[in-house]
């Protein structure tokens, strides 16, 4: 059972607020949001930082629940994914990890690279263009999630892809929100 203590120490060292591994459903999304909110309230976090963290987490969690591929058929769980929220003096760090199809990797990379180099005006124009002209996907997404996370966080999106097998890769997405007020 020592690994529990090791896990505890790791979480303390990395200042993890919440870590969740498993299927991400709407009920889990609400539970993770509630835990994170309670934690921020307990530490008297500033209202504008709280709202940004909440907003970015909603998009991140709903992205995972809509798009994660099932990579562990034996566990019988769908959408197995990892969500972690950590913080230090300067910032909150939200990380999601989930399986995606290898055939989608280039498309996701391309989207993130494109929005990472955009300035505020370009991001605003892209957001307005998608909301006005884009239609809902079959999975109920508006195609706005990544753009919104980039805008609300005010920081570039970090990402990584690790190959799982010939069909799937593990996609990690990192979002950083400054505690200085988000300017």
């Amino acid at each position: 059972m020592k690994y529990i203590y090791d896990l505890h120490k790791t979480m303390l060292r990395q200042s993890m607020v919440v870590v969740y591994e498993g299927e991400v459903t709407q009920d889990i999304t609400k539970a993770v949001l509630a835990m994170t909110e309670r934690n921020m309230d307990a530490f008297g976090e500033a209202g504008n930082v709280k709202r940004k963290v909440f907003n970015v987490m909603v998009e991140c969690l709903q992205n995972v629940s809509k798009h994660a591929e099932n990579f562990d058929a034996e566990s019988n769980a769908k959408n197995n994914a990892l969500i972690s929220i950590g913080k230090d003096k300067e910032e909150y760090v939200i990380i999601s990890g989930n399986a995606v199809l290898n055939t989608d990797v280039q498309m996701i990379k391309g989207k993130i690279d494109q929005i990472n180099v955009m300035d505020d005006a370009e991001l605003k124009a892209l957001y307005k263009d998608i909301i006005k002209n884009g239609s809902m996907s079959a999975k109920g997404g508006a195609g706005l999630g990544l753009v919104d996370m980039r805008r609300k966080s005010g920081n570039q999106l970090g990402y990584d892809f690790e190959p799982i097998n010939e069909k799937l890769s593990f996609f990690s997405l990192k979002l950083v929100i400054s505690r200085g007020g988000g300017e």
Binding site: Q62, I131, M136, A142, L144, D148
Partner: peptide, 13 residues
């Protein structure tokens, strides 16, 4: 509104 997600923003429009 206090918060809305991007999927809701499409419906608000």
């Amino acid at each position: 509104l206090e918060y809305f997600n991007t999927a809701s923003s499409k419906l608000i429009l």
